[in-house]
């Protein structure tokens, strides 16, 4: 018998009916809601490809049971911005060409968003530490760190205006 869970994704209310309430949130995002931006990397909460914001906190969602997010607010990479209105982080990643294969980027953008929400002026070391839960195998790390610094500056300038 299926159960229904209500939560919000990127500001929109969603209602999902599941036969198995343990179904990972990642599978619901990708297979039920068609939001492919959150990637599957390990299914073990180790690599960070599936990072989303849950009530503002960065969390890996590949094993997170859907029942546990009922009533909560989820933000995925699609909720940050788009080509027409890129989030300053997304713009900075493009400016710095911060990526190679790009598979890890959705999760990294989310981790970076969570950091900048909390700490608008992080040091390079603080950024690196905030991203240690995300694995990048191509070796784009330094570009990514530069991009987050650049986005932080842009966001602070935007807030000051």
């Amino acid at each position: 018998m299926s159960k229904t869970f209500d939560f919000s994704v990127n500001g929109k209310a969603v209602s999902v009916s599941l036969d198995n309430e343990e179904t990972p949130l990642l599978d619901v995002l990708r297979n039920e809601l068609g939001l492919m931006g959150t990637r599957f990397g390990c299914g073990l909460e180790q690599c960070g490809c599936c990072m989303v914001l849950i009530d503002g906190a960065p969390e890996k969602c590949c094993t997170k049971p859907t029942w546990s997010v009922a009533g909560k607010q989820i933000v995925t990479v699609e909720g940050l911005g788009n080509a027409a209105r890129p989030h300053p982080l997304q713009q900075a990643f493009l400016d710095e060409q911060a990526g190679q294969c790009g598979y890890c980027l959705s999760g990294i953008l989310i981790s970076a968003k969570a950091l900048l929400d909390k700490n608008p002026k992080p040091s390079r070391a603080e950024i690196a530490q905030a991203l240690d839960g995300n694995i990048c195998r191509c070796g784009s790390h330094n570009r990514i760190l530069r991009a987050v610094e650049k986005a932080a500056t842009a966001l602070r300038a935007g807030a000051a205006r």
């Binding site: 931006g37 599957f40 699609e78 080509a83 890129p86 060409q97 990526g99 790009g102 980027l105 959705s106």
Partner: peptide, 19 residues
């Protein structure tokens, strides 16, 4: 030259075979 494939990856589009 900016990478042609990068914007779709930064915006979380369905670009990978997994998608």
């Amino acid at each position: 030259s900016a990478r042609l494939d990068l914007p779709a990856k930064v915006f979380g589009d369905s670009v990978f075979i997994h998608d």
